[in-house]
Design a binder for these strands. Structure first.
Length: 292
DNA sequence: AAGACAATCAACCGCCAGTAT
DNA sequence: TATACTGGCGGTTGATTGTCT
């Protein structure tokens, strides 16, 4: 019995990404994170791609903080040094090089540095096999993870939001208007969430909530920009921590596949359509969050 | 100018570990 | 506890681009 594939490869597009696909994915991820999980993302974003492919595209190419090409001498030396210490742990090596991905480092190694490395070790006559130290991974990873381990208590009573409507909007309202209102609400909520963060070096409140939320993938918070979608999950966590009667997550309520709301939405809906349709839900729960 | 070859790098594959059910 | 699912990773492939003859 073989492993079940992550998606139906006969129904997904493969090969190079088009500009349009990039735009859809970038916009979606910047606003919603990975919307719960990468496997489900393509359907929600209206992309005919495998979820894994979306994740890879975002992580290796679309993330705004990425740098491509032009490795410096310092980076070369660091890669060579780390490879000598830990071998081909590309993700660990990449984590030490801001803006670089494991794929970038790996490609750069295979095309450029490998030759230099081999020349160096053959020059010395002593080929040192890459010997990963017993806990080197852990020490490096622990250094990275330590930030996400901080627990951050949720803010007590947030102020009211200027852009929060207490009345539901008509879903037939102009998309641009809905998007604008959602953007305003999103910006205010983001400010609200970021403000209580007591330390400059530590994670944001949103990130702390993400790492403390059992149902939230760390990938969401490590994307660099906390999305409205991620925030919704945090809000729900906060609500449950505040002993409210909220039992189901907003995420499932507004976006999940099994609930009435999710089932009512055709899979082909673009996220803009979904945003318009879910605006009322976001508003309602946000209102609940603020005034409970 | 054109074909052969090399270099580059985006994308895919398959496995593993962690987590949810 | 067993199973399924998902994210993450390293290895590899293949299309594209550049260079050489």
């Amino acid at each position: 019995m073989g492993r079940s594939p992550c998606c139906d490869k006969t129904r997904v597009k493969r090969g190079p990404w088009s500009q349009e696909e990039d735009t859809i994915l970038r916009t979606f991820v910047e606003r919603f994170g990975n919307a719960g999980n990468w496997i489900a993302l393509p359907q929600k974003a209206g992309l005919k791609r495998c979820g894994k492919s979306c994740r890879l595209r975002w992580l290796n190419y679309l993330r705004p903080e990425l740098r491509h090409g032009g490795f410096t001498d310092e980076e070369d030396n660091l890669i060579l040094s780390l490879y000598g210490e830990i071998g081909s742990k590309w993700s660990v090596i990449a984590s030490r090089l801001p803006g670089r991905t494991d794929n970038d480092v790996k490609n750069y190694w295979n095309t450029k540095l490998k030759k230099r490395y081999l020349a160096t070790i053959t020059g010395k006559g002593t080929p040192p096999p890459p010997t990963p130290p017993p806990s080197s991974d852990d020490s490096v990873a622990a250094a990275d993870d330590s930030q996400s381990q901080d627990d951050e208590p949720p803010p007590s009573t947030p102020p009211a939001l200027a852009n929060l409507d207490t009345t539901l909007v008509d879903t037939a309202v102009d998309d641009d208007e809905l998007l604008l209102k959602s953007e305003q609400l999103y910006t205010e909520l983001m400010d609200l969430i970021e403000q209580p963060s007591p330390t400059t070096a530590g994670p944001s409140t949103a990130e702390a909530w993400a790492s403390s939320s059992s149902g939230t993938s760390p990938t969401v918070s490590s994307s660099g920009s906390c999305s409205m979608w991620t925030m919704n999950v945090h809000d729900t966590t906060l609500l449950s921590e505040s002993s409210t009667s909220t039992s189901s997550s907003l995420f499932e309520y507004t976006y999940g596949g099994d609930d009435a709301f999710g089932a009512a939405l055709p899979a082909a809906y673009s996220f803009q359509d979904l945003l318009a349709a879910s605006y009322n839900e976001v508003t309602a729960v946000t209102h609940e969050f603020l005034y409970y």
